[in-house]
């Protein structure tokens, strides 16, 4: 990997690590409030919102820590890519249904509000970072050369 690619790879990895560690940690401290945010999407049955709120913060936290440590990058990126895709679908459904709520992406008790459209743009940016991290890691360790993670 040349110098520029290396800078982009580590930059993307560290930005993603910071975002998901923060998101996971802050939501994990108040799972009941986070369950409320999930319920506001009106997608899942009542109890399932709490199941999501119990697990999702730790998944984000775990993947963020792996990105920070530069370990198991591709599994972590794959999980976050799928999660982000689900977030984007959920946000799109809010826009289509005309439901204007706070996205609940970070602090469930925050005063500042992030609209579904703003959150969708932010998630699109995170998607670009995830794809670039995956591709650059892939270039560094192509499949035929073994994973080497």
């Amino acid at each position: 990997m040349n110098r520029l690619a290396s800078i982009i790879y580590h930059g993307s990895r560290l930005i993603l690590a910071g975002v998901f560690i923060y998101a996971g940690a802050i939501k994990g401290t108040d799972p009941v409030a986070f369950a409320g945010q999930v319920a506001n999407y009106q997608i899942l049955p009542y109890a399932w919102n709490y199941l999501v709120a119990a697990i999702l913060p730790y998944l984000e936290l775990l993947c963020g820590i792996l990105l920070l440590l530069n370990k198991r990058i591709r599994p972590a990126v794959l999980v976050l890519f799928v999660l982000n895709l689900i977030f984007m679908l959920a946000l799109s459904s809010l826009i289509v249904r005309g439901i204007d709520i706070d996205c609940g992406c970070f602090n469930p008790d925050a005063e500042a509000r992030t609209t579904p459209l703003m959150a969708l743009w932010r998630d699109a940016g995170l998607m670009l970072l995830l794809i670039s991290t995956w591709m650059l890691r892939y270039r560094q360790h192509p499949p035929e050369a073994g994973d080497g993670q």
Partner: peptide, 24 residues
């Protein structure tokens, strides 16, 4: 490894919040 990550997060999350999920 991605599946293992999800299982690990589920195990940690459910063990820390089992009462909340059980109540729900």
């Amino acid at each position: 490894e991605a599946v293992i990550l999800c299982a690990l997060a589920a195990a940690v999350g459910l063990s820390l919040n089992y009462q909340m999920v059980l109540n729900a």
